[in-house]
Write a protein that binds this DNA or RNA. Structure first.
Lengths: 210, 210, 210, 210
DNA sequence: TATGAATGAGCATTCATTCAT
DNA sequence: GATGAATGAATGCTCATTCAT
């Protein structure tokens, strides 16, 4: 029933679902098998060990799922920056964060499992992180050239924003607080662009432009 | 050799160390025993099950370790705000973040294990999170009354800053990048207080004071 | 090799054998596994804990083995009573006691283990005991109506006979005395029917009929 | 507090109590220690192993407790027989059975543990059983010579009575039925002396005297 | 190819026993 | 003598993995 490629895919999907819910060690292979309606042996037909299955899950997450959620088609970011349309940029960002929040499983597995598998961490993180950083730093630099962003270390600038957004997503997904992602994002973007300091503080601080 | 309270404490310390390194499931009870130089049976004398040991570890982390790293004696934060001394406040913050970064094990265990233990999450998170939030929101509100901070939802304001700092700590501790915590914090604080937007952007945006 | 039902049955049979020989606590799960030629894990495939295996053993003993040894098809006892054939009745009894004596393991486990498991005792004893009592008291009452037995509390009457027989079976099976079950039964039945008192004693005692 | 002999005795008493309640394997040495208010190590000061403690318990049961419950001062039984007083004999028996029923722990331990310890069984059973048998068979033979009892194999005669009484005691102590020991004994003795068969049956059976 | 019964190494847990104080 | 903290061999139980069908 269904060809073997489809079976393989169903196994991966069940593994993602359960690894996210219960962790790698907390998930039994028989649970994965039952979840996708195959026999335990079938899982091992496609993935010789459970660790091999984890590797495939992480590979899919890093090469397909997360890029699909985060990365943009070439030039789209540039176009957005070039458009000088703040509202369009915000809408774009909101849609992206919303999708990420709704597909948090992939991130959860990544964050949890990479900690304990130095080799996988090196193998895959070296692929994903630079790609994302390149993209968002590219965005920041483009904005900077356009005169939107201050001349700050782009890695820190970008990481800080991601951190603020990430904390909101965790607030929603881990602490299960009932947040309106879009409304929260509005405030986060405001803080990010304008800071929390009053004019007085800002005057006493770093001069923004010149 | 040594009284039983000391033995108990040694077991907890080894458990914290190893749970942080290898995760709960990845740590064998005999490893904990060997790490602190007792027999395996001794571990079970004090903690009837491995899960019970985890509960005690989490309890210690939440009731002692993290409060010791984060919370301040009554009034100290107020004093800092009242002093109108930005440098002192920064120094205070740097010292705090540095300590947290240096004692990251506790946070790692908390973040990793609470995900899979809904009951423990409810039991303990309800203690820790409100305490920290109260403290930092108190700080933000105090600063706001002093005219330092804008009138923004303090939960989001504070969470965003913690998120930015947190991401830096992860950058250092999980990705093992070689960061100068103090220098990074300088930039993060700058971003937080002043935003990343240029004057032009800010002029087009929300009016800060009025 | 053999289907799973057969494996389950082999495990139960080995458990009965070994629990009878060495007691529940005295029997290791690996011994049961080896005795029936499976791996230790296989035992736990079918019976999630050793206690669960004991419950199944007791259940089988109570619902199948002992009823198979003791209970009679409907009406057979009545027929025997109606036949007025003392020799046939004796032969029937001898055959029954012999089978019980030869299959004493089941009784041994029952007697030994139920003592320590109040819940199992209630669960199962409430099934077995009333069934047996009903059968034998039915037999006694039928014989009484036929004029064979005196008008004595049937519970005590029956229990006394069972006690006498039981003691003989224990004498043989626990003390390992080399007894001829049939010959012993002859004497026990004689005592039971006629008492041990001489005519003089009986004359001084309860008048039998009148 | 208390001399060492008394401590030893308290340990034995606790062991008897708990072995009867939960079995030898089901009783932990620390439970025995707590039950009699000493440290676990103290138990091992007096009895080098748990098995050694069991041996001492069984020894006490066989050499002291059960003889104290069962055996009679020399000649007392003879006197009772010689007195030709059925009521006195019955009263004597009732008192004895009642005491046995009330002190059933000792028997429980004996019955349960001897099964699994062939060496102990041989060592001690060889002492107790012949003593009891000798006494009761002596009683039966004395009664036979006095013309009270029929000329039946005294071992079987006596064992049958003990079996009937024993079953009543089990009925009370194991099945927890609420029985009046004395009233039950009346009926059992009646059955034992007179049989359950009617005159017709007895006439058709073995001639009692001749 | 798919199955699921069977496997057994690995691990948590128990508890009689030891021994320094 | 008495204590009770510490021990570690013994054992119940788990679960990834194998393989005959």
């Amino acid at each position: 029933m269904g060809d073997s490629v489809e079976t393989q895919e169903r196994i991966i999907q069940s593994a993602i679902k359960l690894f996210a819910q219960k962790g790698y060690h907390g998930t039994k292979t028989i649970e994965i098998a039952k979840d996708c309606g195959v026999a335990e042996g079938t899982v091992f037909k496609y993935y010789s060990t459970k660790m091999e299955l984890l590797r495939n899950v992480l590979s899919k997450i890093i090469h397909e799922i997360i890029p699909g959620l985060i990365l943009q088609p070439e030039g789209e970011v540039q176009k957005l920056v070039a458009a000088h349309d703040a509202e369009a940029a915000k809408a774009f960002l909101k849609a992206k964060v919303k999708r990420i929040s709704e597909n948090f499983s992939a991130f959860k597995i990544l964050i949890n499992e990479l900690q304990y598998h130095e080799d996988i961490k090196n193998e895959y993180f070296s692929v994903l992180v630079p790609g994302v950083i390149k993209m968002v730093e590219g965005f920041y630099n483009a904005g900077r050239l356009q005169g939107f962003f201050r001349d700050i270390n782009p890695h820190i600038a970008v990481r800080s924003f991601i951190g603020a957004v990430n904390m909101m997503v965790l607030d929603k997904n881990v602490l299960n607080r009932d947040l309106d992602v879009e409304a929260e994002l509005e405030v986060i973007i405001d803080i990010y662009l304008n800071g929390v300091g009053t004019q007085a503080v800002q005057d006493a601080g770093i001069v923004k432009e010149g």
